[in-house]
Amino acid sequence: MSDFNYLKTNLNNATMEISINRPEVYNALNGDAKMELVQAIRMAGRDEQVKTIILTAEGRAFCSGQDLNDRSVQGIGSERVDLGHTLETEWNPLINSIKNSKKLVIGAINGVSAGAGLSIALACDIIVARPGAKFISGFSGLGLAPDAGASFTFVKAMGYQRTLEFFLFNQPLTSENLMEVGMINKVEVDFLGVAREMAQKINKMAPLSLELIKKNLQAAQEMGFKESMDNETVTQRFLGASDDYQEGLKSFFDKRSPEFKGS
C-alpha cells in the first residue's frame, strides 16, 4: 500500500507503522519527505482500521531534522531565505499532525534525533527509545534557535537553566537522561517490540476515551486548573453518554474484558 518515496508504511494488527526511510542521510527530511509524513499520519488518523500509530525510522538514526541540501533552506546568492515560511508550511504542520491526531502516536526511537528531528520524536504521545539513543539540538551551531515546538517541550520538562544549556552547547542528551526528566516512557533494547506491545494494549481501549485523554492532557499543559477541570467536566459528560461507557460498566460487573466499538 506504500506509495511513499521517503517512508515505509505497514499496517500491523490495527497499528499503522510509519518508518522514515532515508537512512543514507540519517533520515533528514526535505520538503517532500515532510509532506509524505504529514499525509501518512493524517491518513492513518482517518482510517477506521487503524487504532494506533507507531513512528520509527530505518537505519541508525531516527531523524536528523531539516535536510540542509534542500534548496529552500539555503537561499540563492545574496537572497536570504525565509525559514519562518519553512516552519509555517512544513515543520509546524508536521508536528501538529502528530499532536492533533485522534490516534495515539507511539515513537519507537531507534537512534539519534537532531535539530527539528527532536521535535518529531518528542511530539509523540508515548516514546520508547533505544538505550543510549542521542538527542542533539545543534541549532546554535548554525546560528539558529530551536524550533518546531522544542523550546516549549524542553523548558516544560527540564526547566529553564538545563534547557538553555542543552540548546546553547549542543551536548547530546541520552534516552536515559530524558527518561529521568519524564520526557520519554521506556528505554528498551527491543524498543520496537515494546512499542508494538503497548500499541496492542491501547488498541483494545475505547477510542473516544483515548482521543479525549490525549486532547485534554495536551490542553492542560497550556491552561489553568479551573479551565482544565471545566474541560474534564465537559468530556466526562460526553463520554458518560457513550455506548462504550455502557459496555465498560457492563464488562466490569460481568467480570470480563470490555469490547469497545468507538461510539
Binding site: 479525549l212 486532547k215 460526553f238
Partner: peptide, 13 residues
C-alpha cells in the same frame, strides 16, 4: 471553547 467532540452536547446544554 470546548473539546471538539463535545461541541453539540455543550451547545444543547
Amino acid at each position: 471553547v470546548v473539546p471538539a467532540r463535545t461541541l453539540i452536547q455543550e451547545a444543547k446544554i
